[in-house]
């Protein structure tokens, strides 16, 4: 589904991704862990097409298509979704209007009919329930004045609505209280399916207790330096990243 090979990317003169490889098959959940500043968000942004990054080498294909030459909206229309580490506030942009524009843009690009107001509202109410979110959210401006946790829940709510093929969750767990974490994890698990893949970026084992990954990768200094099963996360929790660094040096 996603194939990243030797990806290198700069911000300004600084190289952040330094030859990154990642293969994700349909239905798989991959966790990416790694120290602050390693390049995890940079990878998410480069994959979803944010401006300001220069890809200097390597490739990224999504279902056989060259991701890197597509506009951000085209990637989303193909089924890529990024839950932001820092969701953006859009003052004055009504949430319902936003959700409808997003859903219908994606449907239209796929040659499906736009949803009428009634079916749209029904769908939205159903998804709100999954995330334990209140109706009043719909009347508000997108993320404007939302608490940190509400913003994160809103990201997963959007994911539930847009039903992507590949979702990248960038530290969706940070800033969530214990109950919210469970709700969000349940929301994510409800979306797991043999066709849908996920990249879960996190610093904490706790999220992975709820969302059990098939693979765990350690991203450090712009590269995946170690991959393993879910037991790798437990090992990291115990020993920290220094351990791999040291081993890596020795090897």
């Amino acid at each position: 589904m996603l194939s990243v090979k030797g990806l290198t990317a700069n911000v300004g003169d600084k190289e952040i991704l330094k030859g990154l490889d990642l293969e994700i098959a349909p239905g798989e959940v991959h966790a990416i862990m790694g120290p602050n500043g390693a390049g995890k968000s940079t990878l998410s942004h480069v994959l979803s097409g944010r401006e300001g990054y220069e890809v200097t080498g390597g490739s990224a294909t999504f279902e056989g298509r060259d991701l890197l030459e597509l506009e951000p909206e085209e990637r989303a229309q193909l089924g890529l979704f990024l839950a932001f580490q820092y969701p953006v506030e859009l003052p004055g942009v009504n949430n319902t209007y936003f959700l409808k524009a997003a859903l219908n843009s994606i449907r239209k690009a796929r040659g499906e009919e736009e949803l009428d107001a009634v079916s749209f509202l029904r769908l939205i109410k159903e998804k709100l329930k999954i995330l334990h979110l209140d109706d009043s959210l719909l009347k508000r401006a997108v993320n404007a004045g939302f608490s940190g946790g509400e913003k994160k829940r809103n990201e997963i709510f959007q994911m539930a609505l847009l039903e992507p093929k590949l979702a990248i969750l960038d530290e969706t767990d940070s800033g969530l209280d214990i109950d919210a974490l469970r709700v969000v994890a349940n929301g994510v698990n409800a979306l797991r399916s043999p066709e849908r893949s996920m990249i879960v970026v996190t610093h904490y084992q706790r999220l992975l207790d709820y969302i059990q990954p098939d693979y765990v990768h350690v991203l450090a200094k712009g590269r995946i330096i170690r991959s393993g099963g879910k037991e790798l996360a437990l090992e990291l929790e115990e020993k920290g990243y220094g351990w791999i660094d040291a081993e890596g040096q020795a090897a």
Binding site: S48, E51, P72, E73, F81, F84, F98, S105, I106, L162
Partner: peptide
């Protein structure tokens, strides 16, 4: 970017 990442042109 936020809007475009949601599929909006």
């Amino acid at each position: 970017f936020y809007l475009r990442s949601r599929g909006i042109g």
